[in-house]
Design a protein around this nucleic acid. Structure first.
Lengths: 342, 342
DNA sequence: TTGAAAGCGATACCAG
DNA sequence: CTGGTATCGCTTTCAA
């Protein structure tokens, strides 16, 4: 019928024009059919022809072209951390991803691989995300927030221990964790409390607030007690070292940052002949399965993270009605779980 | 000077046209300056004016428009798993991301949030990635691979226990792990070997090949021994249950899938009065710090994963010279680390 | 019911 | 050295 050269060979990617040609209709019609546009009525036979042509050619629409035309994307950017995340965080993000997809957003994780925070924000802005959810560890400055906002982001949300000026914030206040641990130790009659400070890079945003929370708990209860930070690397040698000079520290209890550090330290203490919980009470955090398997069973601080669903809805709401004042939500609840270790 | 209405108000995102207007030049010139185009000479004063205008407006180029015009992207798509990843995997991806960024690629993780594998491939293809690196757990069918290839992906690489037809593959042959564990147990004089099979969803792609490897090792050595799969959930109750009927199983050793399951099982066995390693030898895998802290210290299979660098270079090479035969690289080396548990 | 055509933002030719 | 202009793939008026 048509003498057009049918040469969309192996090398060329089919476009809607190719589909139109094959179906014998115009590009407009292709668009109507494939997007199920309801404002225009297309005959059933045409629809079939178009769909067949599309699937014959293996046509896949070009997201960039589409959003260029639309003037906006439905991309939610989730800057990827450059330090491994725990299982809880990962679960949270996976759920968030599903929930947002259900609301028809495209969630994209995009690392900043060692860029300056403001350069990173620029790189993110090139994608013109409609929303940005920045996890802890991804420094987001006021400048960066400005860049993103001016590039069309309707919602910039930080997720972490402390809010950042100018953005909405989901605050997971790690101070609660330290506070909770210390109150537990105090109520058990302990008063000379060590607080493990991991020396691994990237944990400071968690460990510092936990220490601060520990100190605050002391203040609030007005107890006659003291708190001593204990630097520790996640290595046996470091723990042995600490255990060797343990008795000289004069402590009767320790909040070990989390269950893993707690296990490391507890083992070293036991090997050095320091009795747990007799001489020293130990409490971790995260309430991992691990802790229940230790002897003595490890006391821990259990964190109840909010589910991803409300965040997804918040994002959707902010995208649809932008421009409100920065919102601030606190969503970490911590609870001490007493076991045998203190 | 110019009577053009300067109304790029708060609401509108600056484009290169806005920059051109402010600098008093054409859009073409803006493009030349901002991209440091060398094939054309622009006066230093013009350059300055353009750069100033761009930074005054907070101009950020529009990635979609750019790649639409260019006809291709430099996006490497990394489908995000929907099951939490271990620290090793995460480290690998973080490194890969950095390495690729250094080669000027944009690495994007994009989950498929519960889509059908082929639908997922279509969704990915909409982004027109130049390469796709599909981790284990992301089922990628031949159809999916075809969709991606026809949409312009120059390299589709699977990463996991077994290769997928039609794509390049970085094979991390988990059979090596099981094989290694069993050879170790055999050489220690054990012959009735249990193999823990985690019941958690998503682990099958790892656990099945490990079992297969265990069986293969038996075959190869021709030892007079037997292997018995042991279903186990990652819960205390499940482990207690298994431990309670342990003696009736008549096993003298167990490969516990990994160190975490090993710890779970070992604890249950000890609590049930079964001696380790006296009655039963236990070996895990991953060689976590955890294992060294247990008593007895846990034997383990240590995996040496390749670094990300070669993969990044492979991707770059495939992108530049596409069309070769599917490559297949094996990059898991496993080694038993004998400790006290067997 | 369908088609022609404008235009989203950036780039790269070719004139001037 | 710099400025028009065509173009990438797609959506969406407006006409026919």
């Amino acid at each position: 019928m048509s003498q057009l050269p049918e040469q969309p060979a192996d090398t060329s990617i089919p476009t809607s024009a190719d589909v139109a040609r094959l179906a014998g209709v115009s590009r407009a019609t292709v668009s109507y059919v494939l997007n199920n546009n309801t404002t225009v009525r297309i005959s059933e036979s045409t629809r079939r022809r178009v769909r067949e042509a599309a699937s014959d050619l293996g046509y896949v629409p070009h997201a960039a072209a589409r959003s260029l035309r639309a003037g906006h994307t439905r991309t939610v950017l989730l800057p990827a951390a450059h330090v491994p995340a725990g299982p809880l965080q990962q679960r949270f993000f996976i759920d968030l991803q599903s929930d947002l997809r259900r609301l028809d957003y495209t969630v994209v994780q995009y690392g900043s691989g060692g860029l300056d925070p403001d350069e990173a924000a620029r790189a993110w802005a090139e994608l013109r995300p409609v929303a940005v959810v920045s996890p802890v560890g991804m420094a987001l400055t006021r400048v960066g927030i400005g860049v993103l906002t001016r590039s069309g982001a309707k919602a910039v949300i930080t997720l972490g221990p402390q809010p950042v000026d100018g953005a909405h914030a989901l605050v997971m206040d790690q101070r609660e964790v330290g506070s909770c641990a210390v109150r537990h130790l105090l109520s058990g009659g302990r008063s000379r409390i060590g607080v493990v400070m991991p020396q691994e890079p990237g944990l400071a945003p968690f460990s510092e607030p936990r220490l601060a929370g520990a100190l605050r708990a002391l203040d609030e209860t007005g107890a006659d007690a003291r708190i001593q930070p204990l630097p520790l690397r996640y290595e046996e040698a470091s723990a042995e070292d600490l255990a060797a000079r343990w008795r000289s520290l004069g402590l009767d209890s320790v909040f070990a940052y989390n269950d893993e550090y707690a296990m490391l330290l507890m083992r070293a203490l036991q090997d050095a002949g320091v009795e747990v919980p007799g001489e020293v009470a130990v409490i971790g955090a995260d309430d991992l399965m691990l802790g229940r398997l230790l002897r003595p069973r490890l006391s821990s601080v259990r964190m109840e993270l909010a589910t991803a669903q409300p965040l997804a809805e918040m994002i959707d709401r902010l995208v649809q009605h932008p421009g409100g004042a920065p919102e601030r939500h606190y969503l970490l609840r911590a609870r001490a779980v007493a076991r045998e270790s203190g």
